[in-house]
């Protein structure tokens, strides 16, 4: 259930602003990579391009052998790449179970109509991310930020991904909730899931990744083992806000 994600020479310009500057990296099957950098470094923009929510100015994105950058977002999700959002995007007026159901649906109206919901799988996913049985019938309006992130994880998992892109999954979570999500990520890693993770919470991030990529102003400034990347002068400088020239 794993695949290689490869980004080659990715460039994204918004008008005069270069949000992604000649970015190349590979996430091997079963590997977990952390994407770190200061606010506005362009981490989320890379996610959006991988998912096809923003079309890149130039460059390629491969899932396994296949070039996916001409595909629509749903088509990419069918190829096995899926993401969570920094600001959770639940469906506020339907239940937690139904939210997960949307993620589980096949992209075929015929199958949606002819086959019923897989309630066992919905429950399994909800429990896996740390929901209680009673939460299944609640609506997102009644949930905490931590619960919304769990729901986001569950719906992403429901699309049956091979590569998961996690965007700030720990933001706004309690220590207990961070532990739940971390344990889930560890379990999925053991099962061979591939991860690309963005997080500001470096302490929570470190144990979840095999290596790290640091970016600043859309450019990759360091790549390698977490300790090396974090010790890199450029990375330290960019986190302190001085840019690369300090």
């Amino acid at each position: 259930m794993s695949a290689r994600l490869q980004v080659s020479n990715l460039v994204k310009r918004f008008g005069g602003l270069t949000a992604t500057n000649d970015m190349s990296f590979t996430v091997e099957p079963g590997e977990s990579v952390g994407l770190i950098g200061p606010n506005g470094a362009g981490k989320t923009t890379i996610f959006s391009q991988i998912m096809g929510e923003h079309r890149q100015t130039s460059g390629q994105i491969h899932m396994g052998e296949q070039e996916i950058s001409a595909l629509s977002t749903p088509a990419r999700i069918r190829r096995g790449v899926s993401r969570t959002y920094q600001v959770p995007r639940p469906f506020p007026e339907i239940t937690v179970a139904e939210n997960i159901r949307v993620g589980l649906m096949p992209d075929s109206v015929w199958q949606m109509v002819t086959r019923g919901a897989d309630r066992d799988r919905e429950r399994e996913l909800a429990l896996a991310v740390g929901f209680a049985e009673a939460d299944l019938d609640r609506t997102p309006a009644e949930l905490s930020m931590g619960d919304l992130r769990k729901l986001e994880m569950a719906r992403t998992l429901a699309t049956d991904p091979k590569v998961m892109l996690l965007d700030e999954v720990f933001a706004g979570l309690t220590v207990g909730e961070i532990a739940t999500i971390s344990a889930l990520v560890q379990k999925l890693r053991d099962q061979g899931m591939t991860f690309l993770i963005v997080s500001h919470d470096l302490k929570a991030l470190e144990p979840l990744i095999d290596r790290a990529i640091a970016i600043d102003r859309g450019t990759k400034i360091a790549e390698g083992a977490y300790s090396e990347v974090i010790a890199d002068a450029g990375v330290r400088a960019s986190y302190l806000g001085g840019g690369g020239d300090a």
Binding site: S82, P90, P92, R101, G116
Partner: peptide, 24 residues
């Protein structure tokens, strides 16, 4: 009452998230 109906509710609540759940 089928999953199609649920998908339409979801669409009205957050279209990007429907697309982000793999549905056209």
């Amino acid at each position: 009452r089928t999953r199609f109906g649920t998908a339409l509710w979801a669409l009205g609540q957050n279209e990007e998230a429907v697309s982000g759940s793999g549905l056209s």
